[in-house]
Design a binder for these strands. Sequence first.
DNA 1: CCCGTAAATCAACATGGGTTAATCTCGGCC
DNA 2: GGCCGAGATTAACCCATGTTGATTTACGGG
Lengths: 247, 247
Amino acid sequence: MSEILLRKLQNYLGFSEIERKAVLSLPSQTITLPARQGLEEDTGGDGDVYVIEDGFACRYRMLSDGRRQILCYLVPGDVIDLRRFITGAPPPPAVSMSQLRMRAIPSSAVLGMIERMPRLMRALWWSTIVDESIVQEWLVSLGQRTALERISHLFCELLVRLKAVGMAEQDSFRLPVTQAELADTLGLSTVHVNRTLQELRRMDQITLQNGIVTVTSFEKLQALALFSPAYLQMRAATPPPLRPASA
Amino acid sequence: MSEILLRKLQNYLGFSEIERKAVLSLPSQTITLPARQGLEEDTGGDGDVYVIEDGFACRYRMLSDGRRQILCYLVPGDVIDLRRFITGAPPPPAVSMSQLRMRAIPSSAVLGMIERMPRLMRALWWSTIVDESIVQEWLVSLGQRTALERISHLFCELLVRLKAVGMAEQDSFRLPVTQAELADTLGLSTVHVNRTLQELRRMDQITLQNGIVTVTSFEKLQALALFSPAYLQMRAATPPPLRPASA
DNA sequence: CCCGTAAATCAACATGGGTTAATCTCGGCC
DNA sequence: GGCCGAGATTAACCCATGTTGATTTACGGG
């Protein structure tokens, strides 16, 4: 297993050398798939656990008349299908939003590890709790925040999440997401997402080119978005970048 | 423990006589509190697990400028603080919306039970998964559904959930919730909630008096709301009423 | 270098839902 | 029986966001 999972889990708990080794030596197989492809085809109910290494994906729900709501983003470091692995309940459908690289870890290996190392189990649980908190925070955004606040909030959240796994620079990160997908994420129309992005640029809050978001001042954006990172439940400091966000 | 928890869990799995007995003989203590009171004061971090017996409560999040989003309803049969009990992470604040009666079950008793009876553990887990699915479905509502659809959807959901624990009649249930609270639930203004309720009445879809919602035709309301109960993951049939919904 | 397509942008107009501020209803209480 | 406060209801007006449809830009493939 690559380092990214360890980075992710270390946001929640500190680990001993032995625990770190256990994570890094999990057997895994790399899976790559192109943008806009359903994840189920490649991650079918075989019970493996997947960790995103690079690229974005999302879960979504469609209404019968074609409206779509994106339920969560799956970004590098995220562990997916943990729930299915534990409860057997299938999660909502997911698609890649960009080219995606992930690792499949046999569930038996995960099971073995968490049985021997309760702190790792706790960290994995913790990550599922945070995933829930994120959905709740999105509910707050859709229910209460204006378009400007919603976009700003999403950017703040992604910057923090991606920095936590070394996939963002100090003030910028790669966002391989289309404006139409942002619209389905935020409950807005494509046109209005575009307008609002323009406005954020005009306000000199962000820069967005070639899929790279750069934040002028995180503090200002955070204030604008009414963002407070507590719901992400991370320990204070974030580790140094794993590699350039432009990768 | 009263029968309501058993009713709730039986929506997910069938149980043996022994398992049923185990649930019913859980030690518990009744807690009553008035409307609009924070639950934390009475259910502080003592690690107990609580089951709502009668009345509604909700979890919510406030923004710094006073906007409030209700994150979920806690209704009869719901098990709360299960997550905290497992992970130690404190959930968002909660308040009672009506007079509330619940049972506190010592966590040790719950632990003992689920260790001996894996099917009960599975059912409890299942209920937490469903709680998550509900939040996701609310996200779909706030992101994609119109005001009319949102209210209709909420009513459909509550009817199904409450019927599942015997707290609703065939087509009606008690909704001890103010229009302002509905507004904070659905991301609408109080005025618009009122307008929309009027419209539902004018359309002859519902009746709402004295806090009792009566649905004219569940099928029609369901179609209007784009409601499909799959996300509630209940086994087909619902049991007969526990007692009148007007209680 | 040209084409074709997806994504972004823009303009013009429409509307669902927000805001404000009265007014009304009704149960509880003295 | 009148007062009071909470909640429900209305009306009038406004604006944030949606819709439609055209245009431009970016970019991979031939």
